[in-house]
Computed example of a mutant assay.
Amino acid sequence: MAVYSSITELIGNTPIIDVSQLSPNPDVRILGKLEGNNPAGSVKDRIARQMIDEAEADGTLKPGSIVIEPSSGNTGIAMAMICRLRGYTLKIVLPENVSIERRQLLEVFGAEIILSPGAEGSNGAVRRAQALSEEHPEWVFLYQYGNEANPRAHYETTGPEILADVPDITHFVAGLGTSGTLMGVGTYLREHRPEVQILAVEPPAGELVEGLRNLDDGYIPPVFEKWGGLELLDGKRIVRPRESLEWTRRLVAEAGVFAGISSGAALAGAAKVAARIETGTIVFIICDGGWKYLSTGAYTDDLDAAEAKAESIIYF
């Protein structure tokens, strides 16, 4: 077994698990890419490393820099890990109603937490970070929603990994959050296998589903526009809060995969795709593990109670 010089070298090259027992169509395989196996625990490890590497390379980040970033958890945690290793001070603007495990891990890695109103969700955290970066131009604002290092990380790593491991892929399904995963993987697959369908999972307008956003709610991530999102996507699948919880529970109960709620939402979207096609191989993203959500009751509470909590707790 190889010996690595830094924990960041372990980012990427995540395994793929066959969860076809959850497919509503026996002729359609469903495969999940286990991004919770990244060292800081999520798919966001990839973009955190890419954004920081590129900012160091172009001189934006210098020794002792202060970095500010809005996050509801995963990107912040990954950035906190890397900033701690490289000597940067990180300030994370975090909605006040995220799960307690998110705050705790940010604190473990030494990030300073700046709370934003929970009612404003992730969009409120973005606005607060933008305002703070204007007030403090000496701080470095990498801005995952507009930084092309975000989709580029997936274009250079996640996409090639998926195609190498699943050459017979017919559909790629991922949640629409910052849109970096969809844009990067989708662009890579479109260039190398144009017949592969690229599909987004999003909640109904005005409803909260962990880790996802509906573009009709008023905020379109700049990277979605820069990478031609409307032209790239072949379609969308709508997933409601209850469905995301139900499929998250099925993922652990029937496949033994303990994942975060956005993974259940992506799986629900993949199942909807599987139900509409005759044959195929669907790959979806299992964004992170479930341990950061235990305090929410998403896995053990009565389903009605868990769904009600989803209205007040930001899980992603």
Rank of each mutant, 00 (worst) to 15 (best):
residue 177 G to W: 01
residue 177 G to C: 07
residue 178 T to C: 02
residue 178 T to L: 03
residue 178 T to H: 04
residue 179 S to R: 03
residue 180 G to Q: 02
residue 181 T to R: 02
residue 182 L to T: 03
residue 183 M to F: 14
residue 183 M to L: 14
residue 184 G to A: 14
residue 185 V to Q: 00
residue 185 V to A: 05
residue 185 V to Y: 00
residue 186 G to H: 02
residue 186 G to P: 04
residue 186 G to M: 06
residue 187 T to S: 14
residue 187 T to Q: 10
residue 187 T to G: 07
residue 188 Y to L: 10
residue 189 L to V: 04
residue 189 L to F: 02
residue 190 R to N: 11
residue 190 R to Q: 05
residue 191 E to H: 11
residue 191 E to Q: 14
residue 193 R to M: 14
residue 193 R to S: 15
residue 193 R to H: 15
residue 194 P to A: 13
residue 197 Q to H: 13
residue 197 Q to A: 15
residue 198 I to T: 00
residue 198 I to M: 02
residue 198 I to R: 00
residue 198 I to Y: 00
residue 200 A to S: 12
residue 200 A to P: 02
residue 200 A to N: 03
residue 201 V to T: 10
residue 201 V to Q: 01
residue 201 V to C: 07
residue 202 E to K: 11
residue 202 E to A: 12
residue 203 P to V: 11
residue 204 P to R: 11
residue 206 G to P: 10
residue 206 G to M: 09
residue 206 G to T: 13
residue 206 G to L: 10
residue 206 G to A: 12
residue 207 E to P: 04
residue 207 E to K: 14
residue 209 V to L: 07
residue 210 E to A: 15
residue 211 G to R: 00
residue 211 G to C: 04
residue 212 L to W: 03
residue 212 L to F: 09
residue 212 L to V: 09
residue 213 R to A: 09
residue 213 R to Y: 08
residue 214 N to P: 07
residue 214 N to W: 06
residue 214 N to Q: 09
residue 215 L to Q: 04
residue 215 L to M: 09
residue 215 L to R: 00
residue 215 L to F: 08
residue 216 D to P: 06
residue 217 D to M: 05
residue 217 D to K: 04
residue 218 G to W: 03
residue 218 G to A: 02
residue 220 I to A: 08
residue 220 I to Q: 09
residue 222 P to Y: 14
